[in-house]
Write a protein that binds this DNA or RNA. Structure first.
Length: 720
DNA sequence: TACTATTTAATTTTT
DNA sequence: TTAAATAGTA
């Protein structure tokens, strides 16, 4: 057996990981240390050298992209396609299991997956049904609560209300929400995981089968696992399964979504005799960039601890630019980009990173002015577009008529005279009789309805019935095409003014071709339509209709994880923006921001620019802020400060500045000034607006969370 | 029912 | 600033 291709080009530690004995392994893999590489080669090693059947391997990732890439790389390495090797996302694999064992899981055969948008709609409707004031109970927070509980593995009955009425109410919302989903055969993302976990936990035979089957579990981005994912892994591994997990605690940036880095420590306890291997050699960045990243992250306390090193060049200093305002900042970035591109570099090798999406607007304007093509990551994805979701709702209603969520979405789209009144009657009936809206129509048609409404509703019912029967023997893409045709959605969008409707119609056409190219495995016991619908929910589709072009990449610091670029700009590096205001207060929040910063810095291969604006217009008002504390955590030796060479034209909002300075002087208030308030205690002034008697200041008080706006003339602040 | 005016709130988002 | 959601009007 020639093992050279599998071990070639790996360093000693990587090799050690790849060839590790079959016992639990925890690989701590620093940024750019070849984490995916190790995972891929490990899989190849097991199959090729240890003669483990691909069937006994399970590989889990977080994104579809990572899963696809991993499969591709394994196949390239082994030079053969690996069938019956389970590689997928947690959600994808959970979904697969639920489809296979829908009965044991307590689902109907044609259950549908809903995305967070659908979920929110359901919650909103639920609140309306219960006659709850949305101002008192924000739907988003209820959604947050439900998903949070599911991520932790809790059903409503498992949650203690702790005598808290608020909590009690939330639990009851969760309970009602669950009933709605169960009735409509709807499964949200978190539910996929929770169900799959319960499925294995409650069905010993099934679990034993999987235990016999899966001997090796490979896990990517282990630091991002939430409680339910980790439990599922443990359950699946059992006593004999061998987990091989790869992660980096310093790149844990999704704790706010339920990810628990602590699993890295738990792992060593839960699996005895764990082999711990640290990959610390970085192959990506220059020494300067790497040292800077190390220096920043060393300010965090809760770390496993490792030190990345490189044999690479020292490289260029990190350039820090202090801009007057956000316009100046983006112009600077665009100028530097221009120079870099003119030197013959590919635009696609550069990326601009920001903390929050709203920051992209100014950058876009400058890029458009300079005529530099760019691409923004993280916008609406194909299957999330509303016209696509409309079409899908028709298809879902055909597959499952009890899907109230889809019913409501399209019952009057295009408008067919079924107004709020009629729907209200339907809702009432369905609530009182605990049936779906579809079922309610039957009863309602025979009762209390005006003739007009009755006619409209009846037409809708007939339309869905007609679609259902006509589509019965069609293949997938004809089905999609036919349903879109019968729905008359195209006509509906034609009426929309502007070229928006045009795009929507194009997207609908694109949906048909997506269905055309969708591969169906007929051996599986699921209808092609249901499979397509699940696919749509699970893989929202990165830009289906987009053409590839050489362009500058714009994205948030979160979405850049896992990528690398020769040239990186990190912009908006100001305290309050990054670290974000809402994370500054507590140390765990701040540490997560710092990890995010670490992720950002370590994306750069050769050149890193860091920029901040002294003045930034946010939500329509001007803010002054300090450079991000993370900048000062980078040792000076790695930094080259760039000062504007020429005095620029005065900043755009010069009037405001004059006003602001005036009031500041007049009242002795300046940003950063410490103050004392009788009720709120001590705090720091973050912001100031208005003038004279109506001057208001934003103060961050130490005792309370968040900040408060106070009118100076009433607040009686004492300067400290 | 559909359009327009007003109000409100504003991190990050793998699935 | 702005986008989205709601309330009010034709």
């Amino acid at each position: 057996m020639d093992v050279t291709p599998i071990l070639d080009g790996l360093n000693d530690v990587q090799r050690q990981a790849v060839t590790a004995p079959p016992k639990p392994a925890l690989i701590i893999a620093g940024a750019g240390s070849g984490k995916t590489r190790v995972l891929v080669h490990r899989a190849a090693w097991l199959i090729e050298v240890e003669h483990v059947s691909p069937q006994s391997l399970l590989a889990v990732t977080f994104t579809n992209k990572a899963a696809t890439e991993m499969r591709g790389r394994i196949e390239t390495l082994l030079k053969i396609p690996v069938q019956n090797l389970w590689i997928g996302t947690f959600h994808g694999l959970a979904h697969r299991m639920l489809r296979l064992h829908w009965q044991e899981a307590g689902l109907s055969k044609n259950f549908q997956i809903i995305d967070s948008d659908d979920q929110l709609r359901i919650i909103k409707r639920l609140l309306k049904n219960l006659d709850v004031d949305e101002n008192q109970w924000a739907p988003k927070e209820i959604q947050w609560f439900i998903n949070g509980q599911k991520d932790e593995g809790f059903r409503p009955k498992d949650i203690n209300d702790e005598g808290d009425l608020n909590r009690k109410q939330l639990i009851s919302f969760y309970d009602s929400y669950e009933k709605i989903c169960q009735r409509g055969s709807l499964v949200d993302f978190a539910e996929l995981l929770l169900r799959a976990h319960e499925l294995l936990r409650e069905n010993k035979n099934l679990l034993q089968n999987y235990h016999r089957r899966f001997r090796h579990l490979l896990v990517d981005e282990f630091q991002d696992t939430n409680a339910i994912q980790y439990s599922w892994l443990k359950l699946l591994a059992g006593d004999k399964g061998v987990p091989f997990v790869v992660g980096d605690d310093d790149q844990s940036i999704y704790q706010w979504r339920g990810a628990r880095v602590e699993h890295i420590n738990h792992f060593q306890k839960d699996f005895t005799d764990t082999n711990i291997i640290k990959l610390e050699q970085n192959y990506r960045s220059t020494e300067t960039i790497l040292n800077a990243a190390n220096a920043v992250i060393s300010n965090n306390n809760s770390r496993v601890g490792k030190n990345l090193w490189t044999e690479g060049n020292v490289g260029e200093s990190i350039k820090v630019y202090s801009a007057y305002n956000e316009r100046d900042e983006s112009d600077f970035i665009v100028n530097r980009l221009r120079e870099w591109i003119d030197q013959g570099n590919a635009r696609t090798d550069s990326a601009i990173l920001y903390r929050s999406n709203a920051q992209s607007r100014v950058l876009e304007e400058s890029l458009i002015n300079a005529q530099i093509p760019y691409k923004i990551y993280g916008g609406l994805r194909f299957f999330e577009r509303s016209e696509i979701k409309d079409a899908l709702a028709y298809l879902r209603l055909i597959s499952n008529q009890d899907d109230d969520s889809s019913f409501e979405r399209i019952v009057n789209k295009p408008t067919r005279g079924i107004g709020a009144r009629t729907i209200e009657i339907l809702r009432n009936y369905s609530r009182e009789n605990a049936c779906s809206l579809w079922q309610a129509t039957d009863a309602i048609l025979n009762q209390s309805l005006s003739n007009r409404a009755k006619k409209s509703l009846n037409e809708f019912i007939l339309l869905i019935r007609r679609m259902t029967s006509e589509v019965e023997n069609m293949n997938l893409h004809d089905t999609v095409d036919h349903v879109i045709h019968l729905s008359t959605l195209v006509n509906f969008y034609k009426k929309e003014k502007g070229d928006k409707g045009e795009t929507r119609i194009e997207n609908l056409a694109e949906l048909v071709s997506a269905a055309k190219s969708f591969e169906i495995d007929v051996s599986e016991d699921i209808s092609p339509l249901d499979k397509f619908l699940s696919h749509a929910a699970l893989e929202a589709g990165e830009g289906q209709a987009e053409t590839w072009e050489d362009c500058v990449q714009l994205m948030t610091m979160h979405s850049v994880k896992g990528l690398e670029f020769p040239l990186i700009f990190m912009c908006g590096m100001e305290d309050g923006l990054f670290p974000h205001q809402r994370s500054i207060a507590d140390s765990s929040g701040l540490e997560e921001e710092r990890r995010l910063c670490y992720v950002g810095i370590t994306r750069a291969k050769q050149i890193l620019y860091i920029t901040y604006a002294e003045q930034r217009r946010l939500h329509g008002i001007d803010n002054f802020s300090q450079p991000s504390r993370f900048i000062s955590e980078i040792p000076n030796e790695y930094i080259e400060e760039i000062r504007p060479k020429v005095q620029r034209v005065l900043p755009v909002h010069s009037n405001n500045i004059k006003q602001k300075m005036y009031t500041e002087n007049e009242l002795g208030i300046k940003l950063g000034q410490r103050v004392h308030h009788k009720k709120f205690g001590d705090g720091v002034i973050l912001n100031c607006e208005g003038q004279g008697a109506s001057t208001r200041v934003e103060v961050n008080f130490e005792q309370s969370s968040g900040t408060k706006w106070l009118v100076l003339s009433y607040a009686n602040l004492d300067l400290m």
